[in-house]
């Protein structure tokens, strides 16, 4: 059920950007995705994410603690799938190892922090980014800051219910779905899209 026509597009939305949820954007159900605030099928969402990534000048993956650290069985396979996807696209990887506020500031060249994600995006001139393995509450904060202060197109690969504040959000992401994304990327590249 779509309840809003609000478009979640790349910013800068402004210093105090409204949260997409506040503007009536709702999360997708299982089997669905979110594209710029509208609910679509998961396949459409995946196609859009890959299309944006392979047409980007500087696409970057931001893997969070849930895939960076080997905290439970199965993480290693997921991490390998993320690396394979980023290689297929030709994207860089900048890690988000944890969520601690950094003092005096982060080194934006080598890491991203959810408290100031805009610094990393500005410094590296990132035009499309992917959040994967970031706990939802910090992803929500970071995605909102990015939309508020940068023109970066955000894609979230979420293991739970997705994120309204990213431009494309795929929910229930797992190793299999990441491999599907890789396959879509290969096919699109082969078609020269």
């Amino acid at each position: 059920m779509q309840i809003s026509n609000y478009k979640v597009t790349a910013g800068p939305e402004g210093f105090i950007a409204p949260s997409a949820a506040d503007m009536g954007v709702i999360l997708p159900n299982k089997g669905q995705a979110l594209v710029e605030g509208s609910i679509t099928s998961e396949n459409e969402g995946m196609d859009k994410a890959i299309e944006k990534l392979i047409s980007a000048k500087n696409p970057v993956f931001f893997p969070g603690p849930l895939v960076l650290w080997n905290w439970k069985d199965g993480v290693e396979e997921k991490a390998k799938a993320v690396i394979e996807l980023s290689k297929t696209i030709g994207a860089k990887i900048i890690p988000m190892p944890d969520y601690r506020p950094k003092y005096p500031m982060i080194n934006p060249e080598v890491e991203i922090n959810p408290n100031h994600p805009n610094l990393t995006i500005w410094h590296n001139k990132i035009d499309v980014c992917v959040f994967v393995g970031v706990h939802c509450h910090y992803a929500n904060v970071a995605l909102k800051i990015i939309r508020g202060g940068t023109d970066c197109y955000t894609i979230s690969l979420c293991a739970d219910a997705g994120h309204e504040d990213s431009m494309v959000s795929i929910r229930d992401i797992n190793t299999e779905k990441i491999n599907t994304l890789t396959e879509i990327a290969r096919q699109m590249k082969a078609r020269g899209k």
Partner: peptide, 10 residues
């Protein structure tokens, strides 16, 4: 760390 990500850690 996951082995594949060891090198990219700050």
């Amino acid at each position: 760390p996951v082995k594949e990500f060891e090198d990219i850690l700050p």
